[in-house]
C-alpha cells in the first residue's frame, strides 16, 4: 500500500493492478477439472459406452454382411463419435453453474477466454481423445477396410477438438436453461458439418488408396481457427448466460 490510512501503521491489503498469475490460474483450472473427472469416471465413460452401443446397433439393424458394413462404416463411425461428444457437451459448464464456481470463474481477474480454454481442453482429453482412440476397435466391428484406421483416429482426434471448442459455445449459451441439452444440439450440429465432411472425406480418400493428409490438414486448419475464435465466443456466451 503506497499511502497508509490514518491511525494505522500499515494496511494488509494493498490495492492491486490486474493481470498477475494468469498461467497459474489456467493450470489450476485444468487440474481441478481433471481431478473432478477422475473422481467421477462414470461421466467420462458415458459417451464412450454410448459410442460403442450405437456402433453395435448397425450390424444388428442393417446386416452383418462385412461388405455392406464396410460401405457405411466411415460415415457411421464419424457420426456416432460426433453424437457421443455432443452428449457430453451439455455437462461442460452445467456443474460449475449450479455450484456457483462458474460465477467465481467469471470474477477472476484474468481473461475468461483462456480460463475456459482450460476447461475445454479437459473436455477434449476426457471425451474426444478417448473416442478417437476407441474408434479403430469399433471399426473392426463394422469391417472397416484395412488402411483407413490411422485416418479414422487422426481425423477424429483433431475433429473432436473442433467439436469441443465449437460445442462449448453452445454449452455456454444454454447453461442457464433448465433443459438446454436439446437446444444445444440444434444450435451446434449445423456447425459440425464442415468437420464431418472433411473427416469422412479423409476416410474415403484413405479407402480409395489416395492422399488423405490433405483432408486432415483442412481439419487442422478448422481446429486452428476454432482455437483462435471459439474461446472468445465461449467467454461471451457465458457472460450472456450468467449476467443477462
Amino acid at each position: 500500500m503506497k499511502t497508509t490510512t490514518s491511525g494505522l501503521t500499515e494496511a494488509a491489503e494493498p490495492v492491486r493492478e490486474a493481470g498477475e498469475g494468469l498461467g497459474r490460474a489456467v493450470v489450476a483450472t485444468f487440474r481441478r477439472d481433471l481431478t473432478a473427472v477422475a473422481r467421477r469416471p462414470g461421466d467420462a465413460l458415458t459417451p464412450l459406452v454410448f459410442f460403442a452401443m450405437v456402433i453395435t446397433l448397425f450390424p444388428l439393424g442393417i446386416s452383418p454382411d462385412p461388405e455392406r458394413l464396410a460401405l457405411i462404416a466411415p460415415g457411421v463411425l464419424w457420426v456416432a463419435a460426433l453424437l457421443s461428444a455432443l452428449l457430453s457437451l451439455d455437462g461442460l459448464f452445467r456443474g460449475d453453474f449450479e455450484d456457483g464456481t462458474l460465477e467465481q470463474l467469471l470474477l477472476a481477474p484474468h481473461p475468461l477466454s483462456l480460463l475456459v480454454l482450460a476447461k475445454v481442453a479437459v473436455h477434449w482429453l476426457t471425451t474426444g481423445l478417448p473416442l478417437a482412440l476407441m474408434a479403430p476397435l469399433l471399426g473392426v466391428l463394422l469391417a472397416l477396410p484395412q488402411g483407413s484406421y490411422l485416418a479414422l483416429s487422426a481425423t477424429l482426434a483433431l475433429g473432436s477438438g473442433c467439436i469441443s471448442l465449437i460445442g462449448a459455445i453452445g454449452a455456454g449459451l444454454t447453461v442457464g436453461l433448465a433443459r438446454g441439452g436439446m437446444l444445444l444440439s440444434l444450435l451446434v450440429l449445423p456447425l459440425f458439418m464442415p468437420v464431418l465432411i472433411f473427416g469422412t472425406g479423409a476416410m474415403g480418400a484413405a479407402l480409395g488408396g489416395g492422399e488423405w493428409l490433405g483432408h486432415l490438414a483442412v481439419i487442422g486448419a478448422l481446429l486452428s481457427v476454432s482455437l483462435m475464435a471459439a474461446p472468445i465466443a465461449i467467454a461471451a456466451s457465458l457472460r450472456i448466460s450468467i449476467h443477462g
Binding site: T101, E103, Q104
Partner: peptide, 13 residues
Amino acid sequence: ANLLYLGHAPGIK
C-alpha cells in the same frame, strides 16, 4: 483484481 465476492451459492465443488 481486488475483489473477493461470495455469492448465494457456496461455490464449492
